[in-house]
Protein backbone atom coordinates (compact mmCIF):
# COMPACT_ATOMS: atom_id res chain seq x y z
CA UNK A 1 0.00 0.00 0.00
CA UNK A 2 1.24 3.43 -0.90
CA UNK A 3 2.26 5.38 2.17
CA UNK A 4 1.11 8.69 0.72
CA UNK A 5 -1.52 9.58 -1.84
CA UNK A 6 -2.57 12.62 -3.86
CA UNK A 7 -6.23 13.50 -4.09
CA UNK A 8 -8.41 15.57 -6.33
CA UNK A 9 -10.14 17.54 -3.65
CA UNK A 10 -13.25 19.69 -4.09
CA UNK A 11 -14.57 21.34 -0.98
CA UNK A 12 -17.82 23.24 -0.49
CA UNK A 13 -17.07 26.78 0.69
CA UNK A 14 -19.85 28.95 2.03
CA UNK A 15 -19.37 32.12 4.05
CA UNK A 16 -22.65 31.96 5.93
CA UNK A 17 -26.25 30.75 5.82
CA UNK A 18 -27.29 33.26 3.16
CA UNK A 19 -24.21 32.90 0.96
CA UNK A 20 -24.94 30.64 -2.04
CA UNK A 21 -21.63 28.80 -1.65
CA UNK A 22 -19.63 26.87 -4.22
CA UNK A 23 -17.07 24.11 -4.66
CA UNK A 24 -13.40 25.07 -4.65
CA UNK A 25 -10.67 22.89 -6.07
CA UNK A 26 -7.97 22.26 -3.47
CA UNK A 27 -6.14 19.47 -5.25
CA UNK A 28 -2.86 21.37 -5.06
CA UNK A 29 -3.10 21.27 -1.25
CA UNK A 30 -4.12 17.61 -1.14
CA UNK A 31 -0.88 15.99 -2.25
CA UNK A 32 1.33 13.63 -0.30
CA UNK A 33 -1.33 12.67 2.23
CA UNK A 34 -0.40 9.81 4.55
CA UNK A 35 -2.74 6.86 4.24
CA UNK A 36 -2.59 6.47 8.02
CA UNK A 37 -4.11 9.89 8.62
CA UNK A 38 -7.77 10.18 9.47
CA UNK A 39 -10.03 12.16 7.16
CA UNK A 40 -10.08 15.06 9.59
CA UNK A 41 -6.30 14.96 9.92
CA UNK A 42 -6.20 15.14 6.13
CA UNK A 43 -8.32 18.29 6.32
CA UNK A 44 -6.01 19.59 9.09
CA UNK A 45 -3.05 19.19 6.75
CA UNK A 46 -4.92 20.94 3.92
CA UNK A 47 -5.89 23.72 6.33
CA UNK A 48 -2.34 24.28 7.53
CA UNK A 49 -1.26 24.57 3.92
CA UNK A 50 -4.12 26.96 3.20
CA UNK A 51 -3.20 29.15 6.16
CA UNK A 52 0.41 29.30 5.06
CA UNK A 53 -0.82 30.26 1.59
CA UNK A 54 -2.80 33.11 3.16
CA UNK A 55 -6.16 31.50 2.49
CA UNK A 56 -8.97 30.94 4.94
CA UNK A 57 -8.93 27.41 6.28
CA UNK A 58 -11.94 25.14 5.76
CA UNK A 59 -14.35 25.22 8.68
CA UNK A 60 -15.61 21.84 9.81
CA UNK A 61 -17.00 20.65 13.12
CA UNK A 62 -15.19 18.06 15.16
CA UNK A 63 -14.26 17.43 18.76
CA UNK A 64 -13.53 14.07 20.35
CA UNK A 65 -12.13 12.49 17.20
CA UNK A 66 -12.88 9.06 18.54
CA UNK A 67 -16.32 8.56 17.09
CA UNK A 68 -18.47 9.24 20.13
CA UNK A 69 -19.21 12.94 20.53
CA UNK A 70 -21.13 13.18 17.25
CA UNK A 71 -19.82 16.61 16.41
CA UNK A 72 -18.09 15.72 13.15
CA UNK A 73 -19.96 14.97 9.98
CA UNK A 74 -19.07 15.60 6.40
CA UNK A 75 -20.60 14.27 3.20
CA UNK A 76 -17.89 12.67 1.08
CA UNK A 77 -18.87 11.78 -2.47
CA UNK A 78 -22.53 11.85 -1.55
CA UNK A 79 -22.18 9.67 1.52
CA UNK A 80 -22.54 11.08 5.03
CA UNK A 81 -19.37 10.19 6.98
CA UNK A 82 -17.85 8.74 3.81
CA UNK A 83 -17.76 5.29 2.32
CA UNK A 84 -16.86 3.14 5.33
CA UNK A 85 -19.75 1.48 7.11
CA UNK A 86 -20.42 2.20 10.78
CA UNK A 87 -17.68 4.83 10.89
CA UNK A 88 -17.77 8.51 11.74
CA UNK A 89 -15.77 10.96 9.64
CA UNK A 90 -13.13 11.25 12.35
CA UNK A 91 -12.57 7.48 12.34
CA UNK A 92 -12.45 7.24 8.56
CA UNK A 93 -8.85 6.84 7.43
CA UNK A 94 -7.23 7.85 4.19
CA UNK A 95 -6.29 4.29 3.31
CA UNK A 96 -9.92 3.96 2.26
CA UNK A 97 -9.14 6.10 -0.80
CA UNK A 98 -7.08 5.42 -3.89
CA UNK A 99 -4.22 7.55 -5.12
CA UNK A 100 -5.66 10.17 -7.47
CA UNK A 101 -9.23 9.65 -6.32
CA UNK A 102 -11.62 12.55 -6.74
CA UNK A 103 -13.35 13.72 -3.57
CA UNK A 104 -16.37 15.99 -3.34
CA UNK A 105 -16.69 17.20 0.21
CA UNK A 106 -19.94 18.83 1.31
CA UNK A 107 -21.86 19.74 4.44
CA UNK A 108 -24.99 17.95 5.66
CA UNK A 109 -27.79 19.24 3.47
CA UNK A 110 -31.16 19.86 5.06
CA UNK A 111 -33.32 22.93 5.44
CA UNK A 112 -33.48 22.26 9.18
CA UNK A 113 -29.65 22.24 9.34
CA UNK A 114 -28.64 25.64 7.95
CA UNK A 115 -24.99 25.96 7.02
CA UNK A 116 -23.04 28.08 9.48
CA UNK A 117 -19.91 28.12 7.42
CA UNK A 118 -18.34 25.76 4.89
CA UNK A 119 -18.90 22.25 6.24
CA UNK A 120 -20.29 23.30 9.60
CA UNK A 121 -24.06 23.21 10.05
CA UNK A 122 -26.45 24.22 12.80
CA UNK A 123 -27.97 21.09 14.34
CA UNK A 124 -29.68 22.80 17.25
CA UNK A 125 -32.99 21.42 15.93
CA UNK A 126 -31.93 18.11 17.47
CA UNK A 127 -31.49 19.74 20.85
CA UNK A 128 -34.96 21.25 20.66
CA UNK A 129 -36.44 17.85 19.82
CA UNK A 130 -34.84 16.52 23.00
CA UNK A 131 -36.02 19.54 24.97
CA UNK A 132 -39.56 18.84 23.84
CA UNK A 133 -39.62 15.55 25.68
CA UNK A 134 -36.43 13.52 25.40
CA UNK A 135 -35.99 13.15 29.13
CA UNK A 136 -37.32 11.48 32.23
CA UNK A 137 -38.25 14.00 34.89
CA UNK A 138 -36.25 13.09 37.99
CA UNK A 139 -34.84 15.66 40.35
CA UNK A 140 -31.51 14.96 41.91
CA UNK A 141 -32.00 13.43 45.31
CA UNK A 142 -35.49 12.06 44.74
CA UNK A 143 -34.61 8.78 43.08
CA UNK A 144 -35.40 5.37 44.57
CA UNK A 145 -32.70 2.73 44.92
CA UNK A 146 -31.24 1.81 41.55
CA UNK A 147 -32.20 -1.84 41.99
CA UNK A 148 -35.75 -1.07 43.16
CA UNK A 149 -37.14 -1.73 39.69
CA UNK A 150 -35.48 -4.71 38.03
CA UNK A 151 -35.13 -4.26 34.28
CA UNK A 152 -34.87 -7.47 32.23
CA UNK A 153 -31.49 -7.69 30.55
CA UNK A 154 -33.17 -7.88 27.13
CA UNK A 155 -34.94 -4.57 27.70
CA UNK A 156 -31.83 -2.88 29.07
CA UNK A 157 -29.86 -4.09 26.06
CA UNK A 158 -32.53 -2.91 23.64
CA UNK A 159 -32.67 0.50 25.29
CA UNK A 160 -28.89 0.66 25.02
CA UNK A 161 -29.05 -0.18 21.31
CA UNK A 162 -31.15 2.92 20.79
CA UNK A 163 -29.31 5.06 23.32
CA UNK A 164 -26.05 4.56 21.48
CA UNK A 165 -27.13 7.29 19.00
CA UNK A 166 -24.53 10.06 18.94
CA UNK A 167 -26.82 12.71 17.44
CA UNK A 168 -24.50 13.47 14.54
CA UNK A 169 -27.27 14.04 12.02
CA UNK A 170 -26.02 11.60 9.36
CA UNK A 171 -29.53 10.13 9.19
CA UNK A 172 -30.92 13.50 8.17
CA UNK A 173 -28.09 14.06 5.72
CA UNK A 174 -28.66 10.71 4.07
CA UNK A 175 -32.44 10.95 3.85
CA UNK A 176 -33.86 12.22 0.56
CA UNK A 177 -36.61 13.83 2.65
CA UNK A 178 -34.19 15.19 5.25
CA UNK A 179 -36.19 13.40 7.89
CA UNK A 180 -34.84 13.10 11.41
CA UNK A 181 -36.97 10.04 12.06
CA UNK A 182 -34.11 7.75 12.95
CA UNK A 183 -32.62 10.18 15.45
CA UNK A 184 -35.98 10.88 17.01
CA UNK A 185 -36.98 7.23 17.03
CA UNK A 186 -33.75 6.24 18.77
CA UNK A 187 -34.24 8.86 21.45
CA UNK A 188 -37.91 8.07 21.98
CA UNK A 189 -37.23 4.34 21.80
CA UNK A 190 -34.50 4.46 24.42
CA UNK A 191 -36.72 6.10 27.02
CA UNK A 192 -40.00 4.41 26.04
CA UNK A 193 -38.41 0.99 26.41
CA UNK A 194 -37.39 1.49 30.04
CA UNK A 195 -39.83 1.17 32.95
CA UNK A 196 -38.61 4.54 34.23
CA UNK A 197 -39.78 6.16 31.01
CA UNK A 198 -43.39 4.96 31.11
CA UNK A 199 -44.94 7.82 33.08
CA UNK A 200 -44.14 10.39 30.42
CA UNK A 201 -44.30 8.00 27.48
CA UNK A 202 -47.27 9.39 25.53
CA UNK A 203 -46.50 13.00 26.28
CA UNK A 204 -42.90 12.52 25.24
CA UNK A 205 -43.73 10.82 21.97
CA UNK A 206 -46.34 13.38 20.95
CA UNK A 207 -44.21 16.35 21.92
CA UNK A 208 -41.04 15.16 20.22
CA UNK A 209 -42.84 14.26 17.01
CA UNK A 210 -44.54 17.66 17.02
CA UNK A 211 -41.19 19.40 17.48
CA UNK A 212 -39.70 17.37 14.63
CA UNK A 213 -42.53 18.70 12.48
CA UNK A 214 -41.99 22.29 13.62
CA UNK A 215 -38.28 22.12 12.82
CA UNK A 216 -39.08 21.44 9.17
CA UNK A 217 -37.73 17.92 8.80
CA UNK A 218 -39.44 15.73 6.22
CA UNK A 219 -41.42 12.57 6.90
CA UNK A 220 -40.00 9.09 6.62
CA UNK A 221 -40.82 7.40 3.34
CA UNK A 222 -39.10 4.13 4.13
CA UNK A 223 -35.96 4.49 2.05
CA UNK A 224 -33.80 3.35 4.98
CA UNK A 225 -30.77 5.25 3.76
CA UNK A 226 -30.52 6.57 7.33
CA UNK A 227 -29.81 3.13 8.68
CA UNK A 228 -27.10 2.62 6.09
CA UNK A 229 -25.46 5.94 6.95
CA UNK A 230 -25.73 5.66 10.73
CA UNK A 231 -22.26 5.34 12.26
CA UNK A 232 -23.78 3.50 15.20
CA UNK A 233 -25.90 1.20 13.01
CA UNK A 234 -29.18 2.09 14.65
CA UNK A 235 -31.98 0.02 13.17
CA UNK A 236 -35.03 1.44 11.39
CA UNK A 237 -37.03 -0.95 13.56
CA UNK A 238 -36.96 1.94 16.01
CA UNK A 239 -38.90 4.07 13.55
CA UNK A 240 -41.61 1.40 13.43
CA UNK A 241 -41.77 1.41 17.21
CA UNK A 242 -41.98 5.17 17.28
CA UNK A 243 -44.81 5.11 14.75
CA UNK A 244 -46.67 2.62 16.91
CA UNK A 245 -46.07 4.67 20.05
CA UNK A 246 -47.25 7.83 18.35
CA UNK A 247 -50.41 6.31 16.90
CA UNK A 248 -51.25 4.78 20.26
CA UNK A 249 -50.52 8.01 22.09
CA UNK A 250 -52.53 10.11 19.65
CA UNK A 251 -55.56 7.93 20.21
CA UNK A 252 -55.42 7.73 23.98
CA UNK A 253 -53.48 10.69 25.37
CA UNK A 254 -55.31 13.26 27.43
CA UNK A 255 -53.31 16.30 28.46
CA UNK A 256 -53.08 16.83 32.19
CA UNK A 257 -55.46 19.53 33.37
CA UNK A 258 -53.47 22.68 34.05
CA UNK A 259 -53.99 23.59 37.67
CA UNK A 260 -52.04 25.93 39.80
CA UNK A 261 -50.50 23.61 42.33
CA UNK A 262 -49.17 23.81 45.79
CA UNK A 263 -49.51 27.46 46.61
CA UNK A 264 -52.77 27.13 48.53
Amino acid sequence: MAETIDLKLHVWRQKGPSDPGKFEDYSQYAKGISTHASFLEFLDVVNERLVLANQEPIVFDHDCREGICGMCGIVINGEPHGPQKATTTCQLHMRTFRNGEELWVEPWRAAAFPVIRDLSVDRSAFDRIIQAGGYITARAGAAPDANAIPIPKRLADEAMDAATCIGCGACVAACPNASASLFMAAKIGHLNTLPQGQAERDKRTLAMVAQHEREGFGACSNHYLCEAACPKEISVQWIARMNRDLLKAAMTYKPEPQRAGGDG
Binding site: R128, Q131, A132, G133, S179, S181, K203, L206, A207, V209, A210, Q211, H212, E213, G218, A219, C220, M242, N243, L246, L247, A250, Y253, P255
Partner: peptide
Protein backbone atom coordinates in the same frame (compact mmCIF):
# COMPACT_ATOMS: atom_id res chain seq x y z
CA UNK B 1 -40.04 25.68 24.44
CA UNK B 2 -43.61 25.19 23.35
CA UNK B 3 -43.95 21.44 23.36
CA UNK B 4 -47.65 21.20 22.46
CA UNK B 5 -48.58 18.00 20.64
CA UNK B 6 -49.90 18.44 17.11
CA UNK B 7 -53.11 16.86 15.76
CA UNK B 8 -52.28 13.47 14.33
CA UNK B 9 -52.91 14.57 10.76
CA UNK B 10 -50.50 17.44 11.13
CA UNK B 11 -47.62 15.04 11.69
CA UNK B 12 -45.75 13.15 9.04
CA UNK B 13 -46.30 9.90 10.92
Amino acid sequence: LKAEPLPLLATGI
